[in-house]
Design a protein around this nucleic acid. Structure first.
Lengths: 200, 200
DNA sequence: GTCTATAGTTTGATAGAC
DNA sequence: GTCTATCAAACTATAGAC
């Protein structure tokens, strides 16, 4: 690759501006809702006019796609960036808590990641990749702890997802359902590996 | 109340037209998505022009509100219209299945009922009432079967809601997660009333 | 009770000057 | 690379004729 210093600096600045636009987009959707993002508002917040955004993103959906990619990468880092160690109870409990905390700490991010609420938008395979990787890693962890059936794995995801749901729907911004994470993990483990019930 | 036959007939016809409009609205949102409902399309489907709808509903949100009310009443009827009898396992299993089937059989209805995805819309207390009644009745049933803590009740709702979530998000229109309803109920009951584990 | 006409916004996106 | 100007379209809602 031959790249002049000028090109380097230019592309670095370009990436910086893209990041600035995305930050502003997150701020706006947290303020007015995911569907209410408008290019005029977004441009105004970064000190531009709307048409200038097209120098950085080819469409509004491309901005949503980039936001989705950031959120997916954050989920991978937050949940499986560090591999949880310790006993089965400790490792799986840690994953459950990380999932719950990640999903409930930013309702709009969760809406973008886990619901399909923007008409016509679907994340591209590239931006979706970290989400796939996350599932694969969690499954691997479960496998290392002897939980290998699809049923058990799906059940775990349903339980944690259910807690997140209730939290976001009934007590957004609160932590009312966080107290149910540990009981849920106990309930789950007692069901899928009853023989290890007494282990600490 | 003094009402002439003319008034009766007129109001009956009016209610009929309102019902027709709501039916058309459900058809449209199932086709194009909940947020994509437009008054022009809706009017066209019932053979009117958009302004005429204002004779029946005072705003677009009023239409969403009426739809929410229908859905809430349907949920009450489908889940607790008939009181589930039999053993604890049978009664609670029946409730879980009815909840799962109701919520997964119509994704758009579930979106309207359980997510707040329409900007600026919140159901009025009157239309919300059947949903409150449903929760009260399920809680009463649980109480009759000896399950009286908020924790247990919240856990049950989270588990069933989680299954619904997974179903709608990962396999919309399918029935992949229906097979997890019974295991989930077993898991839940084993956790909240372990002493009754052996009962059939 | 339905219509036409239209107000009044807002939207995403493009063309072309500078 | 940012701007002005503008397009073309969509939307909810209202006024007033019939």
């Amino acid at each position: 690759m031959l790249e002049s210093p000028t090109t380097d600096r230019r592309s670095a600045r370009r990436e910086g501006t893209k990041a600035e636009i995305l930050d502003a987009a997150w701020a706006l959707v947290r303020e007015h809702g995911l569907a209410a993002l408008s290019l005029r508002d977004l441009a105004a917040r970064v000190g531009m006019r709307a048409p200038s955004l097209y120098q950085y993103f080819e469409s509004k959906h491309a901005i949503y796609d980039a936001m989705f990619g950031q959120a997916a990468q954050e989920s991978l880092d937050a949940i499986m960036g560090e591999r949880p160690d310790g006993s089965t109870r400790e490792a799986i409990g840690a994953v459950a808590h990380r999932m719950f905390d990640f999903a409930t700490s930013d309702a709009v991010r969760a809406q973008l990641l886990f619901q399909r609420t923007i008409p016509g938008f679907e994340p591209s395979p590239a931006t979706y990749a970290p989400a796939v990787e996350l599932v694969a890693r969690v499954r691997h962890l479960f496998s290392d702890h002897g939980i290998r059936t699809d049923t058990a794995f799906d059940l775990f995801r349903a339980v944690v997802g259910g807690l997140v749901n209730q939290q976001l729907a009934n007590d957004p911004g609160g932590d009312q359902y966080g107290r149910l994470v540990d009981p849920s993990v106990d309930m789950f483990l007692a069901y899928v590996s009853p023989n290890k019930k007494g282990k600490k």
